[in-house]
Amino acid sequence: MRKKVSILYQISELKNSIITLYVIVICIMALTIILPWGKFDPSFDYYNSRFNGLEIITAIFLFIKGTHFFKNDFMMLMQNSVSRKSIFISKCYVIFIVGFAMSIIGNLILVIGNMIPNKNSINIFQGIYDMLFHQRVMQYSDFRIFFESLLFSFVFYLFFYCFGYLFIVIKNQMSRKLKIILITAISSFFIIILPFINALSNNKINDILLRSLNIALGISSGNSFALMLTLITIMIISFCIIYYYIQRAVFAD
């Protein structure tokens, strides 16, 4: 019962921001369609106007919302005596529900936007799936690509929302000592240790890392499922870390 109310509360708090986001996006998209017809500024090339940042804007929005966790949600839920476990579970539900809803809305907006006649008679709204996996988009039917794109943007949004949540949990809950160790360890690894090992191995380490990254991100192979799997794996690890810290989070002055 408390989990259900916690979910409803968190979604309700997001509602206005999400509506505002989509109003702004729709206005920008409307301008992208209208401006080439109007020729308001002769020096501006309206014919090549594109709008392809919808998923990025949404991802950034969700990342920021994730970082707001301790600002309001955690306090309100703890004030109403919701246990940390219920807070964590309800937040997971919220991330999934919001990510799913926004992926559907986002993709529908792109599809509808591209259906509206424009001056150039081309698809002026391009999704991130199309940008990253253009070859795959050309290979398969529109129907299949729509669903793959839907799935991809869903995972993409989940990842960024989760990442924002992870970021703020680590920032708030990790001890100062551990933060310093973590930052020092990561920096040392990339700036000193990795180049050193790479030099010793005649750049073989770099090659292995780049090839692994390529496979994990699936970009050169055009395999979106590889990237989705990578993001899902990172999310699972992130949720485990978040759960560990949330269970120890203190709610007091």
């Binding site: 408390r2 005596s81 919701v82 246990s83 940390r84 219920s86």
Partner: peptide, 13 residues
């Protein structure tokens, strides 16, 4: 961490 028990308690901070 017991939701059932906690719903019998309220704190005005």
């Amino acid at each position: 961490e017991n939701d059932l028990a906690l719903q019998d308690i309220y704190v005005m901070s």
